[in-house]
Simulated assay, not measured.
Amino acid sequence: MGMQYDSNQIAEILPHRYPFALVDKIVDGEPGQWARGVKCVTVNEPFFQGHFPQKHVMPGVLLIEALAQVGGVAVLALPENRGKLAFLGRVKDARFKRQVVPGDVVELECRLTRQKGPIGVGECTAKVDGETAVTAELTFAIG
């Protein structure tokens, strides 16, 4: 097993806080290479008040953000990057294939495929029960 972080340890790496901390735990990974995390979606999420009151669906942009946060952990877990920020620079080829609703456990994975200086690219996938919900290529800038 590689990296494993609970929500408190993630908060030592990422600056995100409620209501924008979208990763509950990191279950595996290798610093600077990849990370796999989990988001347990509950009806108590604040965004469900408005998206949508009559049919709760997790916004796709928040799934992209959750994937970016997992990628951020992979990048910022490197000792030389601790204390820095990872900014989302680009979202490419995002595909939304399945709705995410309360009760879903979302498995989030980001694999860093390229890095040049402070810029990195990750191939990201979110799945629920083994079924792909979202895929995207995300570009990060470390600052």
Rank of each mutant, 00 (worst) to 15 (best):
G2W: 15
Y5N: 01
D6F: 10
D6V: 02
D6I: 10
A11F: 03
A11E: 15
I13W: 03
H16I: 00
H16D: 11
H16S: 04
R17F: 04
Y18Q: 15
F20K: 14
V23W: 00
K25Q: 13
K25I: 01
G29A: 12
E30L: 12
P31W: 13
Q33C: 05
W34A: 02
R36V: 07
V38G: 05
T42I: 07
V43Q: 13
E45G: 09
F47R: 02
F48I: 06
Q54S: 12
H56G: 03
V57N: 08
M58R: 01
L62D: 07
I64F: 05
E65I: 03
A66C: 13
A74C: 14
L76K: 04
A77Y: 09
P79W: 07
R82P: 09
R82I: 14
G83S: 08
K84H: 12
K84T: 12
L85G: 06
L85M: 10
F96C: 04
F96V: 00
R98N: 11
P102H: 01
G103P: 11
V106E: 00
V106F: 06
E109H: 11
C110T: 03
C110A: 14
L112T: 00
K116Y: 13
I119A: 03
G120T: 11
G122F: 05
T125F: 05
V128I: 06
T132Y: 11
T132E: 13
T135M: 06
F140H: 08
I142Y: 09
G143S: 14
